[in-house]
Design a protein around this nucleic acid. Structure first.
Length: 291
DNA sequence: CGTTACACCTGAGGGC
DNA sequence: TGCCCTCAGGTGTAAC
Protein backbone atom coordinates (compact mmCIF):
# COMPACT_ATOMS: atom_id res chain seq x y z
CA UNK A 1 0.00 0.00 0.00
CA UNK A 2 2.17 2.63 1.27
CA UNK A 3 3.87 4.99 -1.11
CA UNK A 4 5.78 8.16 -0.31
CA UNK A 5 2.80 10.12 1.10
CA UNK A 6 1.74 7.35 3.47
CA UNK A 7 5.33 6.83 4.64
CA UNK A 8 5.76 10.59 5.18
CA UNK A 9 2.51 10.86 7.18
CA UNK A 10 3.69 7.89 9.23
CA UNK A 11 7.04 9.60 9.83
CA UNK A 12 5.45 12.87 10.91
CA UNK A 13 3.01 11.26 13.31
CA UNK A 14 5.35 8.61 14.69
CA UNK A 15 8.25 10.94 15.40
CA UNK A 16 6.66 12.93 18.27
CA UNK A 17 5.36 9.70 19.84
CA UNK A 18 8.74 7.97 19.66
CA UNK A 19 11.69 10.33 19.81
CA UNK A 20 13.55 10.83 23.08
CA UNK A 21 12.18 7.58 24.54
CA UNK A 22 14.37 4.67 25.68
CA UNK A 23 13.48 1.15 24.54
CA UNK A 24 13.02 -1.21 27.48
CA UNK A 25 11.68 -4.38 25.87
CA UNK A 26 11.27 -5.72 22.34
CA UNK A 27 8.78 -8.38 21.28
CA UNK A 28 9.04 -9.98 17.87
CA UNK A 29 7.36 -12.65 15.77
CA UNK A 30 9.26 -15.64 14.37
CA UNK A 31 12.05 -15.43 11.76
CA UNK A 32 10.92 -14.82 8.19
CA UNK A 33 12.28 -12.87 5.24
CA UNK A 34 10.52 -9.86 6.79
CA UNK A 35 13.51 -9.76 9.16
CA UNK A 36 16.64 -8.88 7.20
CA UNK A 37 18.22 -8.93 10.66
CA UNK A 38 17.06 -11.98 12.67
CA UNK A 39 14.44 -11.01 15.25
CA UNK A 40 16.42 -12.08 18.31
CA UNK A 41 19.48 -10.15 17.16
CA UNK A 42 17.36 -7.11 16.44
CA UNK A 43 15.70 -7.29 19.87
CA UNK A 44 19.04 -7.61 21.66
CA UNK A 45 20.54 -4.63 19.86
CA UNK A 46 17.51 -2.36 20.30
CA UNK A 47 17.19 -2.83 24.04
CA UNK A 48 18.42 0.17 26.03
CA UNK A 49 18.73 2.43 22.99
CA UNK A 50 17.10 5.85 22.77
CA UNK A 51 15.23 6.84 19.60
CA UNK A 52 16.74 10.09 18.38
CA UNK A 53 15.49 10.74 14.86
CA UNK A 54 13.19 9.41 12.17
CA UNK A 55 14.05 10.09 8.54
CA UNK A 56 12.51 9.07 5.22
CA UNK A 57 14.10 8.24 1.87
CA UNK A 58 11.55 7.33 -0.79
CA UNK A 59 9.41 4.66 0.85
CA UNK A 60 12.01 3.77 3.51
CA UNK A 61 12.05 4.99 7.10
CA UNK A 62 15.29 5.21 9.06
CA UNK A 63 15.11 5.26 12.84
CA UNK A 64 18.28 6.81 14.26
CA UNK A 65 19.42 5.67 17.71
CA UNK A 66 21.60 7.32 20.36
CA UNK A 67 24.44 4.86 19.58
CA UNK A 68 24.60 6.04 15.97
CA UNK A 69 23.13 2.79 14.69
CA UNK A 70 19.97 2.95 12.60
CA UNK A 71 16.99 0.74 11.88
CA UNK A 72 15.75 0.51 8.30
CA UNK A 73 11.98 0.06 7.98
CA UNK A 74 9.86 -0.58 4.88
CA UNK A 75 6.08 -1.03 4.95
CA UNK A 76 5.84 -3.21 1.83
CA UNK A 77 2.23 -3.64 0.71
CA UNK A 78 0.41 -4.13 4.01
CA UNK A 79 2.73 -2.72 6.68
CA UNK A 80 1.26 -0.72 9.57
CA UNK A 81 3.22 1.29 12.14
CA UNK A 82 1.09 2.56 15.00
CA UNK A 83 1.05 3.29 18.72
CA UNK A 84 -0.96 1.88 21.61
CA UNK A 85 -4.25 3.73 21.85
CA UNK A 86 -4.70 3.67 18.10
CA UNK A 87 -7.79 1.47 18.18
CA UNK A 88 -9.41 3.71 20.81
CA UNK A 89 -8.97 6.63 18.44
CA UNK A 90 -11.25 4.84 16.00
CA UNK A 91 -13.80 3.82 18.60
CA UNK A 92 -14.04 6.93 20.76
CA UNK A 93 -14.42 10.57 19.91
CA UNK A 94 -11.11 12.37 19.99
CA UNK A 95 -12.30 14.36 23.02
CA UNK A 96 -13.10 11.19 24.92
CA UNK A 97 -9.80 9.59 23.91
CA UNK A 98 -7.86 12.66 25.00
CA UNK A 99 -9.49 12.64 28.43
CA UNK A 100 -8.19 9.15 29.20
CA UNK A 101 -5.09 8.84 31.36
CA UNK A 102 -2.26 6.99 29.57
CA UNK A 103 -2.75 3.85 31.65
CA UNK A 104 -6.43 3.79 30.70
CA UNK A 105 -5.82 4.00 26.96
CA UNK A 106 -6.60 0.85 25.08
CA UNK A 107 -3.53 -1.29 24.52
CA UNK A 108 -3.22 -3.12 21.25
CA UNK A 109 -2.98 -6.90 21.58
CA UNK A 110 -0.22 -8.16 19.28
CA UNK A 111 -1.39 -10.93 16.94
CA UNK A 112 0.42 -13.33 14.59
CA UNK A 113 0.95 -10.50 12.08
CA UNK A 114 2.58 -8.16 14.60
CA UNK A 115 6.30 -8.58 13.96
CA UNK A 116 7.83 -5.94 16.23
CA UNK A 117 6.57 -4.30 19.41
CA UNK A 118 8.70 -1.75 21.26
CA UNK A 119 8.00 -1.04 24.94
CA UNK A 120 9.68 1.94 26.61
CA UNK A 121 11.24 2.68 30.00
CA UNK A 122 8.64 5.37 30.69
CA UNK A 123 5.88 2.73 30.56
CA UNK A 124 3.93 4.78 27.98
CA UNK A 125 2.35 3.69 24.71
CA UNK A 126 4.19 0.97 22.80
CA UNK A 127 4.95 1.03 19.09
CA UNK A 128 3.76 -1.82 16.88
CA UNK A 129 4.78 -2.93 13.39
CA UNK A 130 2.17 -5.22 11.78
CA UNK A 131 2.39 -6.62 8.27
CA UNK A 132 0.02 -9.32 7.04
CA UNK A 133 1.81 -10.15 3.78
CA UNK A 134 5.33 -9.67 5.16
CA UNK A 135 6.55 -7.78 2.10
CA UNK A 136 7.78 -5.16 4.59
CA UNK A 137 11.33 -5.15 5.94
CA UNK A 138 13.29 -4.45 9.11
CA UNK A 139 17.08 -4.25 9.12
CA UNK A 140 19.67 -3.20 11.71
CA UNK A 141 22.31 -0.86 10.29
CA UNK A 142 25.37 -0.60 12.56
CA UNK A 143 26.86 2.83 13.23
CA UNK A 144 28.55 4.21 10.14
CA UNK A 145 27.17 1.53 7.84
CA UNK A 146 25.12 2.30 4.77
CA UNK A 147 22.71 0.05 2.97
CA UNK A 148 22.73 -1.23 -0.63
CA UNK A 149 18.96 -0.76 -0.68
CA UNK A 150 19.29 2.94 0.12
CA UNK A 151 22.22 3.39 -2.24
CA UNK A 152 20.07 2.21 -5.15
CA UNK A 153 17.44 4.90 -4.62
CA UNK A 154 17.20 7.82 -7.02
CA UNK A 155 16.24 11.34 -6.01
CA UNK A 156 13.30 11.58 -3.62
CA UNK A 157 10.15 12.22 -5.67
CA UNK A 158 9.33 15.38 -3.70
CA UNK A 159 12.75 16.88 -4.50
CA UNK A 160 13.02 15.77 -8.14
CA UNK A 161 13.07 18.10 -11.14
CA UNK A 162 11.64 17.65 -14.61
CA UNK A 163 15.18 17.80 -15.97
CA UNK A 164 16.18 14.79 -13.87
CA UNK A 165 13.24 12.76 -15.16
CA UNK A 166 13.98 13.85 -18.72
CA UNK A 167 17.63 12.75 -18.40
CA UNK A 168 16.64 9.40 -16.84
CA UNK A 169 14.20 8.59 -19.62
CA UNK A 170 16.45 9.23 -22.63
CA UNK A 171 17.70 5.66 -23.01
CA UNK A 172 14.60 3.89 -21.77
CA UNK A 173 12.17 2.23 -24.14
CA UNK A 174 10.02 0.83 -21.34
CA UNK A 175 6.57 2.37 -20.80
CA UNK A 176 6.76 5.74 -19.03
CA UNK A 177 4.71 4.32 -16.16
CA UNK A 178 7.30 1.60 -15.54
CA UNK A 179 10.03 4.25 -15.37
CA UNK A 180 7.98 6.31 -12.90
CA UNK A 181 7.74 3.21 -10.69
CA UNK A 182 11.51 2.60 -10.89
CA UNK A 183 12.83 3.57 -7.44
CA UNK A 184 16.28 4.29 -8.87
CA UNK A 185 14.73 7.11 -10.92
CA UNK A 186 12.17 8.76 -8.59
CA UNK A 187 12.18 7.28 -5.09
CA UNK A 188 8.74 7.03 -3.53
CA UNK A 189 6.41 6.77 -6.53
CA UNK A 190 4.07 3.77 -6.39
CA UNK A 191 1.09 2.50 -8.34
CA UNK A 192 -1.55 4.94 -7.07
CA UNK A 193 0.43 8.12 -7.54
CA UNK A 194 1.92 6.99 -10.87
CA UNK A 195 -1.59 6.55 -12.30
CA UNK A 196 -2.81 9.80 -10.75
CA UNK A 197 0.17 11.83 -12.01
CA UNK A 198 -0.07 10.39 -15.54
CA UNK A 199 -3.72 11.40 -15.58
CA UNK A 200 -3.06 14.95 -14.36
CA UNK A 201 -0.27 15.39 -16.92
CA UNK A 202 -2.44 13.83 -19.68
CA UNK A 203 0.23 11.24 -20.55
CA UNK A 204 -0.70 7.72 -21.68
CA UNK A 205 0.87 5.12 -19.34
CA UNK A 206 2.29 2.96 -22.15
CA UNK A 207 4.02 5.81 -23.99
CA UNK A 208 7.65 4.81 -24.56
CA UNK A 209 9.74 6.72 -22.01
CA UNK A 210 12.36 8.20 -24.35
CA UNK A 211 9.58 9.66 -26.48
CA UNK A 212 8.23 11.75 -23.59
CA UNK A 213 9.15 15.37 -24.32
CA UNK A 214 11.07 17.62 -21.94
CA UNK A 215 7.89 19.65 -21.35
CA UNK A 216 5.95 16.46 -20.54
CA UNK A 217 8.67 15.34 -18.12
CA UNK A 218 8.39 18.67 -16.32
CA UNK A 219 4.59 18.33 -16.25
CA UNK A 220 4.86 14.76 -14.93
CA UNK A 221 7.18 15.66 -12.05
CA UNK A 222 4.94 18.63 -11.18
CA UNK A 223 1.93 16.29 -11.19
CA UNK A 224 3.68 13.69 -9.02
CA UNK A 225 4.52 16.38 -6.48
CA UNK A 226 1.06 17.94 -6.59
CA UNK A 227 -0.77 14.66 -5.88
CA UNK A 228 1.74 13.62 -3.23
CA UNK A 229 1.65 16.94 -1.35
CA UNK A 230 -2.14 16.91 -1.40
CA UNK A 231 -2.17 13.30 -0.20
CA UNK A 232 0.16 14.16 2.69
CA UNK A 233 -2.21 17.01 3.64
CA UNK A 234 -5.13 14.61 3.79
CA UNK A 235 -3.24 11.89 5.69
CA UNK A 236 -2.47 9.55 2.78
CA UNK A 237 -4.59 6.90 1.01
CA UNK A 238 -6.32 4.27 3.15
CA UNK A 239 -7.60 1.79 0.60
CA UNK A 240 -7.36 -1.46 2.51
CA UNK A 241 -4.63 -1.72 5.13
CA UNK A 242 -2.95 1.61 5.67
CA UNK A 243 -3.62 3.32 8.99
CA UNK A 244 -1.93 6.33 10.50
CA UNK A 245 0.14 5.85 13.66
CA UNK A 246 -2.76 7.27 15.68
CA UNK A 247 -5.17 4.79 14.13
CA UNK A 248 -7.03 7.20 11.84
CA UNK A 249 -7.59 6.53 8.16
CA UNK A 250 -6.14 8.89 5.60
CA UNK A 251 -8.41 10.84 3.25
CA UNK A 252 -6.77 10.83 -0.16
CA UNK A 253 -8.62 7.72 -1.37
CA UNK A 254 -11.66 10.03 -1.75
CA UNK A 255 -9.72 12.34 -4.06
CA UNK A 256 -8.40 9.72 -6.48
CA UNK A 257 -9.25 10.59 -10.06
CA UNK A 258 -8.52 7.30 -11.85
CA UNK A 259 -6.81 4.75 -9.55
CA UNK A 260 -9.20 1.80 -8.95
CA UNK A 261 -12.01 3.67 -10.68
CA UNK A 262 -12.34 1.27 -13.65
CA UNK A 263 -15.68 1.78 -15.38
CA UNK A 264 -16.41 5.10 -13.69
CA UNK A 265 -16.62 8.34 -15.67
CA UNK A 266 -13.48 10.45 -16.06
CA UNK A 267 -13.80 13.49 -13.75
CA UNK A 268 -12.62 15.76 -16.57
CA UNK A 269 -14.32 14.49 -19.73
CA UNK A 270 -16.76 11.78 -18.67
CA UNK A 271 -15.20 9.00 -20.76
CA UNK A 272 -15.08 5.59 -19.10
CA UNK A 273 -11.90 4.92 -17.06
CA UNK A 274 -10.03 1.89 -18.44
CA UNK A 275 -7.89 -0.70 -16.70
CA UNK A 276 -4.92 -2.30 -18.48
CA UNK A 277 -1.79 -4.11 -17.29
CA UNK A 278 1.55 -2.33 -17.66
CA UNK A 279 4.65 -4.23 -16.56
CA UNK A 280 2.51 -6.56 -14.40
CA UNK A 281 0.84 -3.66 -12.55
CA UNK A 282 -2.83 -2.77 -12.81
CA UNK A 283 -3.06 0.60 -14.54
CA UNK A 284 -5.99 3.01 -14.67
CA UNK A 285 -6.37 5.85 -17.14
CA UNK A 286 -8.76 7.93 -19.22
CA UNK A 287 -8.56 6.89 -22.88
CA UNK A 288 -9.69 10.34 -24.03
CA UNK A 289 -7.60 12.63 -21.77
CA UNK A 290 -4.42 10.51 -22.00
CA UNK A 291 -3.20 9.87 -25.53
C1' DC B 1 22.88 -2.26 -19.14
C1' DG B 2 17.66 -2.51 -19.96
C1' DT B 3 13.51 -5.29 -19.93
C1' DT B 4 10.37 -8.82 -18.65
C1' DA B 5 8.40 -12.50 -15.87
C1' DC B 6 7.92 -14.16 -11.68
C1' DA B 7 8.46 -15.19 -6.85
C1' DC B 8 7.71 -13.81 -2.11
C1' DC B 9 2.80 -14.05 1.39
C1' DT B 10 -1.96 -13.54 3.05
C1' DG B 11 -6.65 -12.22 2.59
C1' DA B 12 -10.82 -10.33 0.30
C1' DG B 13 -14.24 -10.66 -3.04
C1' DG B 14 -16.63 -12.53 -7.17
C1' DG B 15 -18.62 -16.42 -9.84
C1' DC B 16 -20.54 -20.89 -9.73
C1' DT C 1 -21.38 -23.04 2.40
C1' DG C 2 -17.33 -24.23 -0.24
C1' DC C 3 -14.10 -24.01 -3.99
C1' DC C 4 -11.46 -21.76 -7.32
C1' DC C 5 -10.07 -17.81 -9.51
C1' DT C 6 -8.27 -12.97 -9.62
C1' DC C 7 -6.73 -9.04 -7.43
C1' DA C 8 -3.96 -6.07 -4.07
C1' DG C 9 -0.54 0.27 -2.31
C1' DG C 10 6.31 -3.40 -3.39
C1' DT C 11 10.69 -5.11 -4.60
C1' DG C 12 14.52 -8.52 -5.62
C1' DT C 13 16.13 -11.82 -8.84
C1' DA C 14 16.94 -14.58 -12.85
C1' DA C 15 17.02 -14.99 -17.63
C1' DC C 16 16.95 -13.00 -22.21
Amino acid sequence: MPELPEVEVTRRELAPALLGRVIARVHTSVPSYFFLTPPRTLARRLKGRRADELQRHGKYLLLGLDSGARVLLHLGMTGQLFMDGASSVRLLSSAAAASLAPEEQMRFTPDAHTHVTLAFEDGGPRMHFRDVRKFGKVEWLPEGQGSPRLDKLGVDALLATGEQLHASTRKRRAPIKSVLLDQSVLAGVGNIYADEALFLAHVHPTLVAHRVSRARCHALVAAVQRVMLRSIETGGSSISDYVRPGGDDGGYQDERRVYARTGEPCPECGAVIQRIVVGTRGTHFCPRCQR
